[in-house]
Amino acid sequence: MIELKNIFYSYSANSSENTVALKDINLKINKGEFIGIAGHTGSGKTTVAQILAGLINPSEGEIVVNGESFSDYKSAARALRQKVGIVFQYPEHQLFEETVYRDIAFGPKNKGLNEKEVDECVRKSASLAHLKEELFDKSPFELSGGQKRRVAIAGVLATEPEVLILDEPAAGLDPSGRARLLEELRRIREEGTTVILISHSMEDLAENVDRIILLGNGEKIKDASTSEVFQDVQSLENCSLEIPEITKIIKILNENGMNIPENIFTVEDACDAICKALEVSQ
């Protein structure tokens, strides 16, 4: 659906020389996928996301949207903006309206929808983001941190993007808030939206996404299915990412002569596999 070909991005930093933030990035986003983008801070994750969302233009390279190749970045950006919605880190900082309802309605109104259509959009996205309608008339600034974040996410969902990009959406939430948010993402994905989750929590990625794009120093290090990426512990360590505890345990066990499948990330699966392995050996 969206394809980036040989994308470079550089910007002028504090001095006169240019800093290259992205080097020769090639990637394809297919409809209905749940993709994770991982990488350390400064690896280019956010830059890729902003290019995909049509917010910044690459310095070089080709953008293909729905099979149509754009050499003119301005029209590419316009096409991308219509398709892609992006939830930035700490999205609650972008709320501005007097009421929750009006804030969520900002996107659909900009699209020029009539009142009834706007209303439908608002209600639908609010329910996707688990927001109760009682909150509609409240000021977004009165809500709790978790609620504010869900209002902000609903505000992006209301633009009905085909692709939803989220940059560290769970940052700063407590464990239960985190779990609830990830569950919402799974639901949004089931509704047919393509979801791209940017995160440095490898645990969150392991448990949710199907495919992981690993970035390091502006280059694509790996682009493969989740289980394949996690079997490559070396690459993860090179990108200074945290390896999930379960992966660590399985790695130690296998180094010590056990034979446990390496594509296991959840505690339940690991428990079953370990039980099975121990029974066999006993």
Binding site: Q50, A53, G54, L55, I56, R81, V84, G85, I86, F88, P91, Q94, F106, G107, N110, K111, G155, V156, T159
Partner: peptide, 8 residues
């Protein structure tokens, strides 16, 4: 950027 993405 966030508001641009919402069509502002």
């Amino acid at each position: 950027k966030a508001q641009t993405s919402r069509g502002a």
